[in-house]
Measured scan of single mutants.
Amino acid sequence: KPGPLPPNLDDLKVSELRQQLRIRGLPVSGTKTALMDRLRPFQD
């Protein structure tokens, strides 16, 4: 099960964002902004 995301996704490196997306079965392509947008729904 994926762990909790930090409140500020901007603090994560692109590689860390991609890792979080992979865990959730989401696409890992695109800019850092696109990756963050994709992860936002999973934040508490």
Rank of each mutant, 00 (worst) to 15 (best):
L35F: 03
D11T: 14
M36S: 03
L9M: 04
P4Q: 14
I23M: 14
Q20W: 01
P41L: 10
G30V: 01
L5P: 00
P4T: 15
V28L: 11
L9R: 04
P7Y: 11
D11G: 11
R22P: 01
Q20P: 01
R40N: 02
L9I: 08
R18M: 04
G30E: 03
S15G: 11
R40M: 08
T33Q: 06
P27I: 06
R38D: 01
E16Q: 09
R18S: 04
N8T: 10
Q43G: 10
L26A: 05
K1L: 02
S29I: 06
P6E: 10
D10P: 04
A34H: 15
R38Q: 01
Q43F: 13
T33V: 13
L9G: 04
G25R: 06
V14H: 06
P27S: 12
D37W: 01
R18L: 05
P7V: 15
P41D: 07
D44Q: 09
N8P: 04
Q43D: 15
Q43Y: 13
M36D: 04
S15E: 14
I23E: 13
R22N: 06
I23W: 08
P7R: 15
L39V: 03
P2H: 11
R24W: 02
T33D: 14
L35G: 05
D11M: 13
D10H: 07
G30N: 01
L39S: 03
L26F: 07
T33L: 09
E16L: 01
Q43K: 04
T31R: 07
G3E: 14
K32D: 04
D10N: 11
D11E: 11
L9C: 06
V14Q: 00
E16R: 01
S29E: 14
I23T: 08
L39Q: 05
P7S: 12
R24M: 14
P4C: 11
I23C: 07
R22L: 06
S15P: 07
L21I: 01
Q19C: 05
R22M: 03
D37P: 00
P4V: 14
D37S: 01
P41Y: 05
D10F: 04
P6R: 08
K1R: 00
N8I: 06
R22D: 12
Q19E: 13
P27G: 06
L26H: 00
L26W: 00
P6K: 10
R24L: 05
F42V: 09
N8K: 10
L9Y: 02
T31L: 07
G3A: 14
E16C: 06
R18P: 02
Q43I: 11
D10W: 14
P2T: 12
R40Q: 12
Q20L: 13
L26M: 13
Q19H: 06
G3D: 09
V28M: 13
L35E: 07
T31C: 12
L9T: 02
L35A: 06
S29C: 09
K32W: 02
M36N: 03
L17D: 01
L12W: 07
G25S: 07
D44N: 09
V28N: 06
M36A: 08
S29N: 08
L21N: 09
F42G: 08
G3W: 03
R40H: 04
P41K: 07
P27K: 11
D37E: 15
K32R: 12
E16D: 08
L35H: 00
Q19Y: 11
L21C: 08
L35C: 10
M36T: 08
P4K: 15
A34M: 08
K1F: 05
L35R: 01
P4N: 15
D11P: 02
D44H: 10
P6A: 12
D10S: 08
L12Y: 15
D44V: 13
K32I: 05
Q19D: 12
S15C: 10
P2Y: 14
I23F: 06
K32H: 01
V14M: 11
G3V: 14
D10K: 11
P2A: 15
L9E: 01
R40V: 06
L5A: 12
L9Q: 08
Q43P: 03
L35P: 04
P41T: 07
L35Q: 09
D11Y: 10
R18G: 01
L39A: 03
M36L: 05
P41I: 12
G25L: 00
F42Y: 11
G3T: 14
G25N: 12
D11S: 15
G3Q: 15
R38G: 05
F42W: 11
L21S: 00
G25W: 00
L17R: 03
L9S: 03
R38W: 00
D11F: 10
V28P: 09
L35I: 14
L26T: 01
V14P: 08
G25A: 06
P41G: 11
D11C: 08
D37G: 06
G25H: 15
P4Y: 15
P27W: 00
R18I: 10
P4L: 14
D44A: 11
G3Y: 11
L12E: 06
S29A: 11
R40C: 04
G25V: 00
V14T: 09
R22Q: 00
M36Y: 02
L35T: 04
A34T: 11
Q20E: 14
R18D: 00
T33P: 10
N8S: 05
R22E: 12
R22G: 04
L35K: 05
Q19R: 10
Q19M: 09
P7W: 06
P2V: 15
Q20R: 03
R22F: 14
N8Y: 10
R38H: 00
P7G: 14
R24G: 01
V14S: 05
A34L: 02
P27M: 07
M36C: 05
G30C: 02
P7K: 15
T33M: 06
L26I: 05
F42S: 13
R24T: 00
K32G: 01
L26K: 06
R18Q: 10
R18E: 10
I23H: 13
L17A: 03
P27A: 06
P7T: 13
P2G: 15
K1M: 01
